[in-house]
Amino acid sequence: MEYFVPLSLNRAEKLKKKLKGSFYLAGGTMLNWRGAPQAKALIDLKELNTQEIEASKNKIIIGAGVTIQELALSKKVPPEIAKAAGTFTSINVRNIATVGGAAASGFFISSLLPVFAAYEAEVEYYLSGKKKSSPLAAWLKSKKGIVCAVTIKKSARKVAFTEDKIAASDFPAIVTALGIDLHGGKIANAVVAVSGAKGPLAVSEKASQYLNGLKPSAVDTCKLCAAALKDIPAAANVKVSARVKQRMIESHLASLLRKLL
C-alpha cells in the first residue's frame, strides 16, 4: 500500500484523482476498523493545517483535523457541542478520531452530527481547486471534496441533545438534537436532527415547519413527535426495534422541549 502526505489541499485532491482505490486518512478510526485498511493508497491529511479551533466575532471554525477529545475539552465551542463530543464512544477513540472523519466517514451513528445540525453548521470543503461551503445535512448527501472545517455561527441559538444507549460501551441507539432561535417570543429556525434512526443524520423538515412561528407555550409535544416521525423513519437493528427507536425520539423530544422552553 502506498502512503502519501500532501502539503496542500490541491495536492491532496490531485493525488486522490490520480490514485485509484486510494482513501484519505485522518484519525483512521474507520479506515483501520476491524483489520488493516483496505486501500491501495492512503493520503494522509495531517499536514493540511486543519487542527485548530478558531473563534471569531461571528463564527467558530472547527478544523477537520481537530480530534473529538480536543473538541470535548474546548472552551471555544458552545457547551452542548463539547458535551456531545464528550459522549462520543470512548476516550481512547476520541483521542484519535477527528471532526472531519466524524462528518465524512458515514458511520451509522454519530453523537456529533445531530448537534452540529441543530446549530445549523456548515461544512467547509475543498473541491475542484476551491474551498466551498454547504449546510451539513446537504453536504452529507454528496460528501464531495475534502472536509476542511465545520463552521458554526455565533448566536444566541438554543440547542440541546440527548441520547440512549443499550449499554454504556455500545454506540447510541438514537441521538436527538433540537436547535431553535427565539425571535420576538416565537420559535424560529427550528432544527430537529436525529442520528441512528436509519442513518447517521436525519433532519425533519416537518418538525421545523411545526415549530417555527409557535410560542414556546403553544408547543404540543405529541404534535411535534408526530411531525418528526413522519420525516424520520426508523429501522430496526439487532438490538433495538424500530418502535423503540421511535419511542426514544419521542422521549428525547419531550425532554429537550422541557430543557429548552
Partner: peptide, 8 residues
Amino acid sequence: LVNSCLLI
C-alpha cells in the same frame, strides 16, 4: 490514551 489496534 489510544487503541494501538486503530493506528497504522
